[in-house]
Write a protein that binds this DNA or RNA. Structure first.
Lengths: 188, 188
DNA sequence: TATAAATTTCAGAAATTTCTGAAACTTTGA
DNA sequence: TCAAAGTTTCAGAAATTTCTGAAATTTATA
């Protein structure tokens, strides 16, 4: 059985699930695995969150597809056991990556496609411009993301901790290493 | 009537809606307004996307609650007209802010609450630790976000464009202004 | 290769979300 | 104040998503 603390955490993840674009069961499965020190098998998860075996099976499949849980095998046991990666930063990276893939990339593709087909009539002038503008902005954001994603976790944490102090640094470097501050093009 | 280019854009936003946590109609309404040079009233939106008048009314209400559309009045016309803000960066800020409010803040609150109630039994030790760790990481991320959000748009764009070049700057400043690089605490 | 344990699939049931049309409400100006 | 134009609300219909249990499939080992 599952403790009170764990219960509450799991229920919260279930409720939030819908806001995060996953369903309740998937959220709960993830939460249970996240809090568990040892890998769990499907039946243990069923016991912990009281849903059907098949539902857990599908949820685990989905989480595996998302790369959010790992399959582990326990010596002398035929059943599949699951865990979450224990590096939280890896989880965050995966999460962001997945959301980008599902929520941003298809739109970026569509925008490029629409840009290509151009304004077919004068009254599309304005719309075409807006589409281009939106595309440029999303490209700026995703290429920044790609850059950040390349950084080692240690460096990334450093940057996050610096936060807006960066502004000062930037101010100072502007004088020291002006070349670094060259602007490319403004997606205004 | 709506052009082909616009039609395609609107349909795409409708389809993506569900992935973005809004419904199809809301996505379509937003798309129509985004592409329209002039403010539109509810009936014009109905005509453009072919859904019921009441559906548009509710969608507009939702978009207003999200702060993603603005009410405009046209001289000598009693009806309400709507537009999207024309600064794209403002839209992005709103979007991020709203998502944070709905998807992150409630969890942060819950995590703090759970941390406070502490591990009630020895077997909660591990879970309690994980909850604390998760809380710290989310706090780091949100406080970074708060910092970024304070920046003027111009500065923000600069930072985004720098991307991973920052790493170089950081490397150099480390020698020049070492105090700025002090670490606080690692949420590893 | 046979069999028993474990897992997955899938059709329909249950739950949830979205959408509509009719009715209620609000606002404007004659 | 009344009526007409405009807007919102809301109960139930329609659509979509999630969940279940039974059957099918896969896997390990005797």
């Amino acid at each position: 059985m599952i403790s009170n603390l764990q219960q509450e955490f799991v229920l919260h993840f279930g409720e939030m699930g819908s806001r995060w674009g996953i369903n309740r069961t998937v959220g709960q499965i993830y939460a249970v695995l996240f809090l568990s020190e040892k890998p769990l098998n499907a039946d243990q998860i069923v016991e912990a969150i009281s849903v059907s075996r098949s539902n857990v099976s599908m949820g685990l499949k989905e989480l595996q597809a998302w790369n959010l849980v790992r399959l582990k095998h326990v010596q002398g046991d035929r059943r599949d056991y699951f865990t979450t990666p224990d590096d939280l930063w890896e989880i965050v990276r995966t999460l962001v990556e997945q959301r980008k893939k599902r929520e941003i990339d298809p739109t970026l593709t569509k925008l490029r496609e629409l840009q290509l087909q151009g304004p077919n009539s004068p009254e599309d002038q304005y719309a075409h411009g807006k589409i281009a503008e939106l595309g440029e902005m999303i490209e700026l954001l995703t290429s920044w993301y790609d850059d950040m994603n390349k950084l080692e976790t240690e460096r990334l944490i450093q940057l996050l901790q610096l936060g807006s102090k960066l502004q000062n640094i930037l101010g100072k470097t502007e004088k020291l290493i002006p070349s670094l501050n060259k602007r490319k093009k403004t997606a205004e």
